[in-house]
Structure formats: structure tokens, C-alpha cells
Design a protein around this nucleic acid. Sequence first.
DNA 1: GCCGTTTTCGGCCCGACTGTTTTCAGTCG
Length: 582
Amino acid sequence: MDKAQIVDVLEEIGALLELKGENTFKVRAYQNGARALGTLDRDLGEVIEADELGKVDGIGKALVEKITTLHQTGELEYYEKLRSSVPDGLIEMMDIPGLGPKKIKKVNDELGVESIDALREACESGKVASLAGFGKKTAEKIIEGIKNREAYAARHRWWDAFQVADPILEELRKLKEVERAEHAGSLRRRMETVGDLDFLVASKKPGPIMDWFTSMEGVKEVSAHGETKSSVRLDDGLQADLRIVPPDRFFFALHHFTGSKDHNVRMRQRALERGLSLSEWGIFPKESKDEDVKLSEREPVITPKSEADIFKKLDMEFVVPELREDRGEIEAAEAGEMPELVTDEDIRGVFHNHTTASDGRATLAEMTQAAQDLGLDYLGIADHSKASFQASGLDEERLEQQIAEIKALNESGDFKCHVFTGSEVDILRDGSLDFDDGLLKQLDYSVASIHNAFSLSEKDMTARIIKALENEHITMLGHVTGRLLLAREGYAVDIPKVIDAALANGKIIELNASPWRLDMDWRFWRKASERGLLCSINPDAHAIDQLKLYRAGVSVARKGWLSPKHILNCRPLKEVKAYLGL
DNA sequence: GCCGTTTTCGGCCCGACTGTTTTCAGTCG
């Protein structure tokens, strides 16, 4: 069994234990263990072989045994027994808002409910409402939750969520009672997908703000409306939470609600090591913890003017939200070694863009004008090659024609923005390329991508990509896995091996900035860039308004610890030409 | 189940909101 499958098993064990009413800390130990294993960036077999699994934080003796057994045999008696003792439907019920392990256990124990369908019937017949601790409203909420289960469970691509969230934030900032307002949560951390929208406001008069929020346009349902916190469901099922705190607690709360959870746990531990206690209400002396005064009424030991002051109090450099994932940022901030992350303004031009010659919606001239309007100094065109017939890929003749067209455009002096000739050349099933070397040589650059035969085995797919990377006329590799976030899994490919091959052959790997792709995943970039891998943040634009999507790529590049020096298109035109040998 | 140690047990983040209750349990983030 491979690592990802074992992670799933551990997570399921956690959920099953929770439903059985096990000790919550034991449950958490499985969840932590799953996470620790998931972020392990070494080969699991090697770690087990070297007897080093137990050294991983969060994996102890019991988990070492279970993981090893699963890895070697693909089976685990403990898990099988646990699984057969809990009906399948119970785990599904965990998706219903307001239903947790205790309530699920109760309807199962007392009403014999084992499936979502049976649960709905029990709610409708009034059986659920008559249980102790349950009531009419609980039953109604469950029915509603079952009805909207799919919409409620859905995640959303960051870019889409941001388009919804940003106008709300703007409106919040206009309210006179609002002193400050920010996004929080995974949206602020710029995760590639987000589950809900978090807003944080500083105000001394929360009432009117809450009233506005719960009645604003687009609210379908109010799931909570309190003094400091409200939650609403928007039309498309997206949940939005608003929290309002006193102005002097704003930055503590902002840090807290930005997360991630794992980052916060580390930060609180760090506070404890210094005799302090950190929460959304402030930093307090540890020993005063059990006094019978509300934290909201107690004076914190510092009054931060920004989030940076909180980090400073814990002897750390400021950590930007994108890096708060407990993936080394605590250690780097302690050592004073935070990276200078790339920003939107560092981007000087963009490669990998399409025109009407293949499946784009704008002409070469329109794309060039749009790039220039965005302040970019260069634009790389890379229309599809002939094997992508579904995208009207160019054959040799049409590509040569386009090369001439681009040359004429550059010489016309009509645009300040320089255009590079290129191609998104298909990597064929056997790893050969859709154009021969003679034609590729004429191009300023080329992006090699996979658009067919997705179902090859991981071994064959990896070999196919590596073979393409060994072609001397290829500049960069396009979308490494071909994933479409929340829509299609990527094809099976051994990414670390592909990174090795790109490094060995001096090739760039693209960070495809389409909000649907964000591929190669940010989790691989830090290590790869430290080894010298060069990145190109490519919008893969098929229309003029998609050129700006490079910004979505910058977001995840920042999550991947990338600095301008790691990114080709942060370089000025002259240096890019030199890099491409022009 | 993990972890650390004043080293083998006891703590493990913690506060807000809802719906039930009549002071609190469960859920959520």
C-alpha cells in the first residue's frame, strides 16, 4: 500500500474512533499521524527500512507498527475490525453541519439509524426530535443539511472564492462602524481551494455590522447570528463567517483566524515555552490562565500595531499568511531566514499563451496589446501543436506562418511589448514530440505538455515526460500532472523523478497559473528551487482577461517559498533573451 | 495514541454559538 492510501486509512481510523466515542486525544493522534505521514517528503519504504519512521513528529510506536504493516501487507486487522463495527453511513453523516460524533452515535444507538436515508426518515417522523438533547430545530437542520449536502461539502477554487469575497470585504470597509476589515482563513493563506470565506472586523459597535452581514445580498440562510460571530450560506452553498472583535484585539484575532491550525498550534506551544499563553484574545502570562476573568476583559502583555508585533514577542520574524502551514516557517522565522517572496510587481512578462490560431479567443495583436496594457515587457505565445486537434493545434506550415507573423509584429514597432515565438508542443504517447527538432529550433522557446493518453501507468508516464525533457530544444515542461482542481485528478506521475530530470537537463518546470490548475503543486517548489530548479509562472491564457491570472500563480509561488531569482519571468527582457540564447 | 520529563504518567488550544437545557453538551473552527 502506498503512502497516500495509508494516510487515508489513518484518517478513517480517526473518524471511526470518534464515532465510537473514543478519547478525543487518541482520535487526534491518528489525525496528526495521518498528517505527519502525508507531509513526509521521503520515500516511505526507505524511511521504514532505515527504521526512522518513529523519529517523525506525531508518529509513535503504535503508528510505526500499523503503518509498516499497511505498507508491507496492504492489510491491518485492527482497521478491518474497527471498520466492520461501524456502519458505513455513519461516516457520511459527519458531513452534515451540526452533526458530530456524539449526536450520530446517539441516533445510531437509540434509533438504530445506519444510513442517511434512515436518518431523514427519523427526522421527518419526529423520532429524532424526541431524543434527549435533540429538538425540533435540530431535526429541521439535519433535513436541510441532508438536502444541501453536496453544495455544503463542496470546496471552491481560490480565484472563484476571492471574486465573491472581495466585494463583501469592500462593502464591510464602507460601514461606518468598521475600523478595520480583512480576509482570514485559507482564503488569506491563498490555498488553492477554500471551504468557506472568513472575514474579520475591528469595531466597538458590532451590532449593525452583524445585521448588515446577515441580511446582505446573496445570503440564502443564516446559520448563526451572535455578538461576535455570524455565519451565512450564500446562494451557491458557500459559507461565509464574520467575526467582530474590539480594535485593540484585532491583530491577535487576525493571526488566530488566518491559521493554519497547525501553524497556530506551533505558535501557542512557542508562547508556552516563554511562559505566555496565546489566543485570539491576546498574549497573556501563562500562570494567570485559570483566573476567573474573561480573556476579553484582561489586558494582554502587548498591544500590537500589526501582526508582526505578535511574532516579535515570540522572538520571530514576521511570517506572511501564505507560509503559515507549519512547513518550516516557524524554524525560518526563528532563525531570521524568511525568504524574499515574489510579488505581482516582480513579473515582467508571461510565457505560454494561446491565440485564435489554436483555441484562444483573442488574436495575436489583441493579446500583445493586452499584455502591454498590463505593463508586461514581453509575451510568449505557445499555441497548441497538431496532435491537439481538438484545440485546433497548428501544423508545421501554420506554425511557420505564425513565426513570420510574430517577427513582423515585433519589427513593426507597433508595440513596446516584445513577443516570443513558441509552441505548446504535445508530448506524444512514447515521449517523442509533435514537431521535429528542425522546427523546434526555429522557435524562441517551447513548452512540452501532455494532452492525451492520460491513463498510462505512473512508471510509463514518468518515463514519457523524462524523455521529452531530454530533448535539447525543449525550454520548459507544461502542467506537470494535468490536474483540474475539484474537477479532474492529475495523471499518475512521479513528480520528484521529473524534478530530478528537469534539473539534470537544465529545464524549467512551469507553474501553470490557471486557477483550475496551479500545477506543479506549491508543496514541491521549496525543495526543488533550493536544488536550483527554475520556475516560470505561466497564465496559460486563452483570452485577454486571462493574462492577469499570472497573479494566481504568484499566490501559490509564494506558498512554495519562491523568490524572483527562482522565476524566469521575473527577469528583464534582455536577460530572458540571453537565457533563451537569442 | 503521542510526547516529554521535575523520566512512565498526565496533559494534549480554547472560545463562541446553538439548541437544548434550566446550567450545559455538542459542534465548529
